[in-house]
């Protein structure tokens, strides 16, 4: 298995060496076809993270282009979720830098950071809805980055235009009829679909998804992934998602980044990989 991984890594390295990328644009092989030149939307430069004396990962570098769906895979404890949080600027990197939508996150002011995040959505493993509030209020909260203030705290106070936007987002995930139901009265799959509606309601340029179907049964998980990627493909949204599901990584990702032993050990187009290649990361 180690041999398979090594050969994959060397072939990927060759592939990367052959890539001719300009500083701010990438020419990507997405699936079978070459995508047009796309601006870089997320860039990690030699990023390392330690918690106390415990290193999580080090020297992580990559550039993700607009519209690209990237699967971040790796065994438990390799730091996938931590890397995702570093990319969003939710936790600081120990060394190195992250550039999100052309702005270096650790140099951004609070206002710049909020403006940057207003173009970002997050779907977590646990849907993270506020249980006692209505589904509609939860979705409206996804607009707080663009419309801060009390009018978007609750569906009762929200302007009509925002309510309509939120209802449209719920329609896209098939839950418009549940708008006034309390969030804690939903099933796991429904809750995750509401979380997706909250993430897409602000028409983000980038979506991060941290194991979006890990808490769901296989059928509901498949439905959520199908829905999620159908919605984001329509809008040319850049997606970074973590997953333990190798089939999901290959099916929904254009590109796969593999974390192992605290480093990026795999960086390749999903089309060039097989399930066996990814299983090597879990040995």
């Amino acid at each position: 298995m180690r041999d398979t991984l090594s050969s994959t890594i060397s072939s990927v390295t060759d592939l990367l060496l052959k890539r001719q990328a300009a500083p701010d644009v990438l020419t990507e092989q997405t699936g079978a076809a070459f995508a047009p030149v796309s601006p870089v939307e997320i860039e990690a430069r030699a990023v390392s993270k330690t918690f106390g004396a415990t290193p999580i990962f080090s020297d992580v570098s990559f550039r993700l282009a607009r519209g690209e769906a990237t699967a971040l895979v790796g065994a438990n404890g390799t730091g996938k979720s931590t890397l995702l949080r570093c990319l969003m600027g939710l936790i600081p990197t120990s060394t190195g830098s992250v550039h999100l939508l052309g702005q270096q996150t650790d140099e951004a002011t609070g206002r710049q950071m909020r403006n940057m995040r207003a173009q970002v959505g997050l779907v977590s493993q646990k849907h993270n809805l506020v249980p006692r509030l209505s589904v509609l209020s939860n979705v409206l909260h996804g607009l707080l980055g663009k419309h801060p203030g009390i009018r978007h705290w609750s569906h009762s106070l929200a302007p009509q235009s925002s309510r309509e936007t939120a209802i449209q987002a719920l329609e896209r995930v098939g839950l418009a009829d549940f708008a006034h139901r309390r969030a804690d009265r939903l099933s796991g799959g429904q809750s995750q679909r509401v979380a997706i509606a909250r993430a897409i309601v602000g028409a983000p340029k980038i979506l991060f998804a941290d194991e979006p179907c890990a808490s769901l049964d296989p059928s509901a998980g498949e439905d959520v992934m199908e829905l999620f990627f159908r919605l984001v493909r329509d809008e040319n949204v850049t997606v970074v998602f973590t997953s333990h599901n190798i089939e999901h990584a290959l099916k929904y990702g254009d590109r796969v980044l593999g974390l192992a032993q605290g480093r990026i050990q795999l960086d390749a187009t999903a089309a060039s990989l097989s399930s066996a290649d990814l299983r090597g990361l879990y040995d």
Binding site: R117, L122, N128, R132, L144, R198
Partner: peptide, 29 residues
Amino acid sequence: DKGPAESLTATGARKLDVVACATIPGSLP
């Protein structure tokens, strides 16, 4: 639970909005 607050922070919500929409409703019981 810090999860809802993190989800709103990730979408650019201000601290006061995060507290009003996630932390206080979560602490209401």
